[in-house]
Write a protein that binds this DNA or RNA. Structure first.
Lengths: 357, 357
DNA sequence: GTGAAAGCGCTAACAC
DNA sequence: GTGTTAGCGCTTTCAC
């Protein structure tokens, strides 16, 4: 057994090419290519020699060269605001898993809410010939947004790729996009209805950015639930911040300092609820004894808050998988889909009946 | 101004090449390339025409073709077990930000602890000519692990890339890797010492997998803190699970059911602590009144547990940035570095003095 | 200043 | 079965 020594890779040469392997195996480059592709008849002897050379040189075919030659690994891009937020992290996980299952490579980019970064990344993805770009998370639904996004959708489409909007404002008819929404308004409506059904009448809303579609959807649900009962919520009870834990904490402290009157709180996200809960505890208030609290997203941690948080479940991981499947499911010419995923409220311990009056 | 109409991109043609642009601008491909590269003298008039053609056709140079030609966007790969875990998500964020800052593209892959997936991904990254591959998170430190990882390090190195081990078992001398560790043992030691200093003598340890280096490092710290005080912890107080919230919850329930005696708990991660805390609450136990609890990682949520969790701070995001910087900082020939990052305990409310005896 | 030609590493059509 | 050739989209000498 000659040459069976351990790693006999090429000493210093940066990386070996298919021709190096061919030379070593005493065949042509095409033969190596064929052996590696495996979809072509090659004599057993040759195959063995080639395979051995490959192993000895620790050869891997250059992915870029393959791509240029038209047989690259398909790639998928996932763009979110912050990988650190638990809900989108779960979605990223779903995307990544499903992409892998479908033999795609997936790139993740968090933009920190920076539109320029987002744009740059998408451009990069177009250059990478990404099969699809999934944009997730609410955004300000302005005319500029629609125009800009539309342009992105068009150029992606014209390059044979596809834009998927997930929880993002749709673009109006005719745009070559797939949009998947999870029902923010419906979920918030159901949640607020649950709180109102417990007898609460002054419900504080800890919302997100005033032009952010996710935030607004949830706010609309909160409002709608009131109106469905013939109630008109006090505008002073609608607070705005962002979706972070710190925002919830700060907003709650302010509300307390301003001596706003309320017996329950609906937070725009579980993170916000977590911060609010801590502020409540710091103020010595009992939840849900003195004040009820509800969140949104059902992140795993929600169960470990004390009291366990009543919230709205959003199937983020599944959402990620679905986004990938629909994005990849059809060519650019397919009908432009619009999916709306349902959510449901999960009742735990943080909302109690409003006993006093 | 003729031809200033809106998006005048190529109707159906999949994607336009540099030659299409050249044709439209009435120049050669090289000229287009030069204009786009911007590092070469080109007459103002030509430049304008080319730029206009580029805009009109919405052209982006193919990243793969550039890569093959030797001028690709450098790429960096980040491999973790689970993007969903808060600590590594923060690290992923750090990696991604720093990579972007340095003009690198970054690929993230979560393996779900599957070694095969890990291997496949690394192979893929080698094919992509990734500038570096960052592996993060503990692993079983077996001979197979060392051999396998060493082989990866070698083949990455021989391809001009580099392996970075982050919080992973090092490979012994001579391996072409950069290893960055955060001091698990030291942190756990300090934390346990803090608990012991509060007078606790029977402290339950909610650990991770028995062969997992991170888990073991923390366990060693726990042990060492005892011994430094001349104490020998009861082996029955060392429980093993994994790093999830559910593991903490389950382990805690079992400990309670088995009526283990202890006055404090040290959990291997904040997630584990969160689950344990809920189990404690479910059992009607007061924390820290009846039993103290400490975690590890200092995830943002730790503050929102009730009581706020005493834990060990690990600068995950910074860790990610650092990993990128050192990975990119030097060629494959540089000295093999070994960094050990310090941690510190952050005292909050979940650990109290052991009053009774 | 600009174009023609060669070449990056690979695959695929076309010989033999 | 296997080698030769052309070509993927780009950059980069090398001429002019």
């Amino acid at each position: 057994m000659p040459g069976v020594g351990l790693t006999r890779k090429n000493g210093e040469a940066g990386r070996s090419t298919i021709r190096d392997v061919a030379a070593r195996a005493g065949v042509s480059a095409s033969t190596v290519s064929r052996v590696l592709a495996g979809d072509y008849p090659v004599s057993a002897a040759t195959r063995t020699r080639v395979l051995r050379a490959v192993r000895e040189m620790d050869y891997v075919a250059d992915a870029h060269a393959k791509a240029v030659a038209g047989v690259g690994t398909p790639t998928l891009a996932f763009v979110l605001e912050d990988i650190t937020g638990p809900s989108f992290a779960h979605m990223a996980h779903g995307v990544e898993r499903e992409a892998a299952r479908l033999g795609h490579l997936s790139l993740v980019c968090s933009t920190d809410g920076d539109v320029r970064r987002e744009l740059e990344f998408i451009e990069m993805m177009r250059a990478q010939r990404a099969a699809a770009v999934i944009l997730v998370g609410g955004a300000a639904d302005t005319p500029e947004y629609r125009e800009r996004t539309r342009r992105i959708a068009d150029s992606l489409a014209s390059a044979g790729s596809r834009l998927v909007l997930c929880g993002r404002p749709p673009l109006g008819p005719g745009a070559p996009v797939t949009v998947i929404e999870y029902d923010n308004e419906g979920g918030a409506h159901a949640l607020a209805a649950h709180v109102l059904a417990q007898g609460h009448r002054r419900v504080l809303f800890l919302g997100g950015k005033p032009d952010h579609t996710t935030a607004m959807g949830r706010e609309r649900g909160y409002l709608a639930a009131h109106r469905a009962r013939g109630l008109e919520p006090d505008p002073a009870l609608l607070l705005h911040g962002d979706f972070t834990r710190d925002s919830g904490h700060r907003l709650m402290r302010e509300a307390l300092a301003r001596k706003l009157e309320f017996t329950a709180i609906v937070a725009a996200t579980d993170m916000v609820a977590a911060g609010a809960l801590t502020a409540l505890h710091e103020a010595g208030l009992d939840v849900p004894g003195e004040v009820s609290l509800a969140g949104y997203d059902d992140i795993p941690f929600a169960r470990d808050l004390h009291p366990a948080l009543t919230t709205v479940h959003v199937p983020y991981e599944e959402l990620g998988r679905l986004a990938v499947r629909t994005a990849l499911g059809h060519g650019a010419e397919s009908a432009d889909e619009h999916l709306l995923l349902g959510t449901h409220v999960v009742v735990r311990d943080s909302v109690a009946a409003h006993s006093g009056h």
